[in-house]
């Protein structure tokens, strides 16, 4: 449903024959596979790469 309902202009992409696309193009396949894993790894780094050093808030009452 979401394929046709949300992004109809991308319909051809969903129906694309990837086997045909990558047939005889090992470099393209290798690059795509590398990109796939790189996106996963870098997303994880972005998600967990930043620390949280915040502390419980308090009101200092001597000013």
């Amino acid at each position: 449903m979401w394929k046709s309902g949300w992004l109809p202009e991308l319909q051809p992409l969903f129906e694309m024959d990837f086997d045909e696309l990558f047939e005889g193009r090992p470099v393209l396949r290798r690059l795509a596979l590398f990109m796939y894993y790189a996106i996963i790894v870098f997303t994880l780094i972005l998600m967990y790469g930043r620390g949280d050093f915040s502390t419980p808030p308090f009101v200092y009452q001597e000013f």
Binding site: L33, Y36, A38
Partner: peptide, 24 residues
Amino acid sequence: QGTNRKPSHLASLALALAAATAAI
């Protein structure tokens, strides 16, 4: 000939991890 060779996931993952290590 190399025309029918398909890349392994392990090699791609290793390459991606190497790129991530270099970035870190």
